[in-house]
Amino acid sequence: MSLFIVNILDGLVTGLLLFMLCSGLTLIFSMMGVLNFAHASFYMLGAYFAYQISLFSGFWLGLIVAPIAVGVIGALIERYGLRRVHKYGHVPELIFTFGLALLIEEAVQFFWGKSQQAYEAPEALDFAAFQIAGNTFPAYKLFMIFVAMGLFLVLLYILTKTRVGMTIQAALSYPETVQNLGHNVPMVFMGVFGVGTAMAGLAGVIAGPVLGTFPGMAFLLGSIVFVTIVIGGLGSLWGALIASLLIGWIQTFAATYNVRMEDILTSLGFTKPEPIWDSAWQDLWTLTLPQIGPILPYLLMVIVLVVRPQGLFGKRET
């Protein structure tokens, strides 16, 4: 039971981190119709920028400056890159962000090399917050939860209580109408892209010390971010939140509980062939839940898309 509670908390951390990426991505998608393949690359840039800043002035300045820097880069890329490609249609746009992801990874290697960087959590948070049956919960992870929650609340406030937010919300549902009403859509696009990438950057800043700061970090997270927003329903912020938490918990529990196919098959009345390494069914018999944990989100996505192409909470079809 205590392990279960720890897993709930760990899954929450993973899910909220995922949400910090997904919220920006889904905003960008809803506004601009662009699935930004390079979104996780901005997350990586956030971690590297914060690492570089932490070499000179510690963790906390990076927490502020790195996301802003990432957001500015994102806005510039929108202005001078994406907008140019926009007129060719959505597929070239997607391909552009795909190329951008490759380019950012190469650029990161160009500047910082290929090894993992020693980007560490601040010493002030380097202690165990509490302990459940021998499992310690690091204070830094509590901090991550607070930052993600804070971001979510700020986002919610902006979207529901401010004028800018109203425009964005309207554009989520009725993009053409908003444009017709004479809002400066290109400016809004640039702003949304900048803010979305800045949020990814912030996720990178706080995730870098835990998940590692290395050139492969974007690739490792890249496609799972897509999967999450597709499951949640493109364009739905709540859908993104719920899907993020769902995937966070699925991955945590799948890694923890060692459900074995052998037990399932035996309980169904099959007998295990011996010797097992000689059997054509060896792979089925030795299958365990942790082995397939990381691909469960993809399986879930394919099923969701086949059954309900607009995703769990999406309103309009893609």
Partner: peptide, 23 residues
């Protein structure tokens, strides 16, 4: 005694929990 997917695990915390819990 277990195997995890190679190069695909983003966060090893769940595995760590299990190892600690196993004593």
């Amino acid at each position: 005694n277990e195997l995890h997917p190679i190069g695909k695990v983003k966060d090893f915390t769940p595995y760590a929990r299990k190892i600690v819990a196993s004593g």
